[in-house]
Design a protein around this nucleic acid. Structure first.
Lengths: 347, 347
DNA sequence: CTCGTCATTGGAACCGGTTTCAAGAAGGAC
DNA sequence: GTCCTTCTTGAAACCGGTTCCAATGACGAG
C-alpha cells in the first residue's frame, strides 16, 4: 500500500485509469479522451505518444464511467419470460438479428416471476443500464410505465400491447378463429380448448385466442360447452393432465385447440399415453409454430416469431435514432400450417 | 433552460438525483445516501423526512452511478455463443436457478461471432459491468485472460476448460466412446460421425467426442473410414445435407453418431426424406439430451445441461463471496439414454 | 457550570470518464 | 515587428452516487 515515488501509486491489481495514461504520456486527460474517441485536432506526434502510453499500460476505458458521463450505454435490453416459453427463444433470435449491424449491444434479462420482473425494471427504468428496452410477452406495471416515460426511455413492446408504446403484435382473435375454423371445416363439432390462465404479469393473448375460438364456434352454429374450455400454464405436464381429463370425459372431444404449441405437445403426449390415435380419433392444433412443431408434424397457427423480434429491434433502433416511427401498433400476419395432427372428424 | 428560482432547475424529463432529494428534505446528500442504504445512526424524524422526499420525487438511485462509486455492480454476466440454441438455453436456465436466492442479477450476452466475442469481453473484462463472469461453451482469448486476471474478475467456465479458471465440464472423450460403443454393441460396423468444424472462437468439444468415437471403433477392431467422418455447423439444415450425403454413399453407414442432438435431428430429417427407416435401416444417436430429444424419441448421451449452469453459478457465487473453491475442474457425469432411434444393425 | 462523549449530520473527496472554456503557441497578413 | 487567426492543449466542471472526516449539538458526569 506504500505509494511508490515514481507515481505508480495504484495497487497492482487495478486497471489503469485515464489519468495514468495521461501522466505517462505527459499530457492532460482531455487529450487522452480526445485520442480515445478519435476527435480531430490532436497533433499527430501527441497522439502517437498517447497511443504508446495506452499500449504500455494495457489501458481500456471503463465503459461504466463512460456511460455515466455520456448518459448513454449503447446497450439495448430485452426483458422477457425466456424460459417459460420456447417461442421467446425464437423472438430473441430475431432481436439479435435485428440489432446486428447496429452499434448497440444486446443484453437479455429473464423474467420468470413477478419478483424478477420488478428487479428488471428497477435495473432498467432509469435508462442508466440500457438506452432502450424491448419488452417481450409481458407488460410493464403501471408505475414503471410512468417512470419509463418520465425518463424518456425508448421502449418497444413485442407480443404485448400498451397505448403508450409502439408494439408488434398479431391478431390473436383472428388466430383463434383460424385454428377453430380449420377444425370445424374438418367436420369436428366437439372442439375443446386449452388456454392460459389469466396472466399475473404477462400479456393476455390467451383471452383473445379464446374469443376467436368462441366466434368460430358460434359462426358454425356449435354450442359452447363449459366443460370443453380449460386453462393451465404452458408447462407441458400441466397441459398433459388437462388433456387427459378432457379425453376422459364421457363425451370426449374429437379435436383440441391448444392456445400454444407447448400445450399442444402436452395434448399429444396425453393422447399417446391413453392410446388415442392422432389424427384418426383426435385432431390437435397448436399456436405459434415453434421449431419443434415441424419435427412433430404438429398442425398449428404460425406467427412470425423471429420476425417479431427483428421488427421490434428495428423499431427500437428507429426510436433510438430519433427517426419517426410510423405505426404505433404493427400487426404481423398469421398463417395456418396444416401438418399431420389434424384430420377429418371420426364418423 | 432558464433555471427556476424555486430550485426546480432540472429539465422536466430527467429523473431526480440524490441532490434533489437532499434539497427537498433539507438535508445533505450523505444523509439521503445513509437512508437509502439503511445505515444506522440516522434520527428517525430525519429519515422520515428523507423518505417523504424520495416518495414525492419518485426517486430511484442510479444503479450506474452506484456501481461506479461502489466498484461493484451486483450483476453476473453469462457470455455464450448462440444463446438461442437449445443446449445453451438449458444451461442458462441452470444459471438462473443457481443464482436465484442470491443478491446477484444475471445478464446474458450473446456471442455469435468473433467480433461479438471481442465486444463482450470489452464490456466485461474491466469488471465495471458485472462482478463476475460465466463463460459458457467458449474460451476467452489469451489477452483477455490476462486482463481478467489483472482486474481480478471472478470467472467460471462452463463447458470449456482453461488452466487459469475453475470449470465445469463433461468427459467428451468418454461420451463419444459411450455413444459409439452403444452402436457397436448393437452390431453396427459402418458407423459414421457428424461433428462440429474446428472452432473459431468456441470450445472444441467436438474434437474430444470424435476422439472417443475413434477409440471405440479401434477397440472393436473396426477400421476408421475417412468418408464416414464429416463436419458441419449445428444448424439443422447443414446436418441434414451432410447426412443426405452420407446416406447416398455407395456403401452407406448403418449408424450415425451426431455430436449434438441438433445435428441428430438433421440426420433424422434426412433419413425421413430419403425414406430410410429409423431404426430399422439406420440407427441415430445424438449428444446432449436437449428437451426435444424426449419428444422425438432420440437415443442420446445425456449431459447435465441445466446442472452445469447451476453448478457454474454456485461456483461463481462462492468465488464472489470469497469462499474457497475446491476443484479447479469439476466433471459432471454422462449417461446413455436409449430411446427409439437406435436398434440392431440390419442383416 | 464545565468538560468529555456520543449521536447526527453535512462538506468534500472520490469512482473514471467527457466536454467546455480559456489560454498559450504558432503562423500569416499587414 | 505587431496583431489577429487558428491549432493544440489542459484545468476544471460535470455525470450521480458513497463515504471519510470534521463539526455540531445534546447529554450526563463531576
Amino acid at each position: 500500500m506504500e505509494p511508490l515515488p515514481g507515481g505508480a501509486a495504484r495497487p497492482a491489481g487495478s486497471p489503469a485509469r485515464i489519468a495514468d495514461v495521461a501522466a505517462l504520456a505527459g499530457v492532460g486527460v482531455a487529450t487522452v479522451s480526445r485520442v480515445l474517441n478519435g476527435h480531430v485536432g490532436v497533433r499527430p506526434s501527441t497522439r502517437d505518444r498517447v497511443i504508446e502510453a495506452i499500449d504500455a499500460l494495457n489501458y481500456r476505458p471503463s465503459s461504466l464511467a463512460r456511460s455515466l458521463s455520456l448518459q448513454r450505454t449503447m446497450v439495448v435490453a430485452a426483458l422477457l419470460p425466456w424460459f417459460t416459453n420456447p417461442s421467446a427463444v425464437q423472438r430473441v433470435r430475431g432481436i439479435v438479428d435485428g440489432l446486428s449491424g447496429s452499434k448497440y449491444d444486446l443484453m437479455v434479462f429473464d423474467i420468470e416471476s413477478e419478483d424478477r420482473q420488478r428487479r428488471a425494471f428497477e435495473l432498467f427504468d432509469r435508462g442508466d443500464r440500457a438506452d432502450g428496452l424491448l419488452v417481450v410477452s409481458t407488460l410493464p406495471p403501471e408505475p414503471e410505465v410512468d417512470r419509463l416515460r418520465a425518463a424518456d426511455i425508448p421502449c418497444v413492446l413485442v407480443d404485448a400491447e400498451h397505448p403508450d408504446f409502439p408494439s408488434i403484435v398479431v391478431d390473436d382473435v383472428a388466430g383463434g378463429e383460424m385454428a377453430t375454423r380449420h377444425l370445424v371445416a374438418l367436420g369436428h363439432r366437439r372442439v375443446a380448448l386449452i388456454g392460459d390462465p389469466p396472466p399475473e404479469f404477462r400479456f393476455d393473448w390467451s383471452r383473445d385466442r379464446t374469443k376467436g375460438y368462441e366466434r368460430a364456434l358460434a359462426a358454425a352454429g356449435i354450442e359452447l360447452r363449459n366443460d370443453y374450455v380449460r386453462e393451465g400454464t404452458r408447462l407441458p405436464h400441466v397441459a398433459r393432465s388437462i388433456a387427459a381429463e378432457l379425453l376422459s370425459l364421457p363425451e370426449r372431444p374429437t379435436a383440441i385447440f391448444a392456445a400454444s404449441d407447448t400445450q399442444a405437445i402436452g395434448v399429444l403426449e396425453a393422447a399417446r399415453y391413453l392410446g388415442i390415435g392422432v389424427p384418426a380419433e383426435l385432431s390437435v392444433i397448436g399456436f405459434d409454430d415453434i421449431e419443434v412443431a415441424a419435427y412433430l408434424g404438429l398442425t398449428t397457427v404460425r406467427q412470425p416469431l423471429v420476425e417479431s423480434g427483428r421488427r421490434g429491434a428495428k423499431l427500437l433502433l428507429d426510436v433510438l435514432a430519433g427517426r419517426p416511427v410510423a405505426p404505433l401498433r404493427e400487426l404481423l400476419p398469421l398463417e395456418l400450417i396444416v401438418r399431420g395432427t389434424t384430420g377429418t372428424a371420426p364418423a
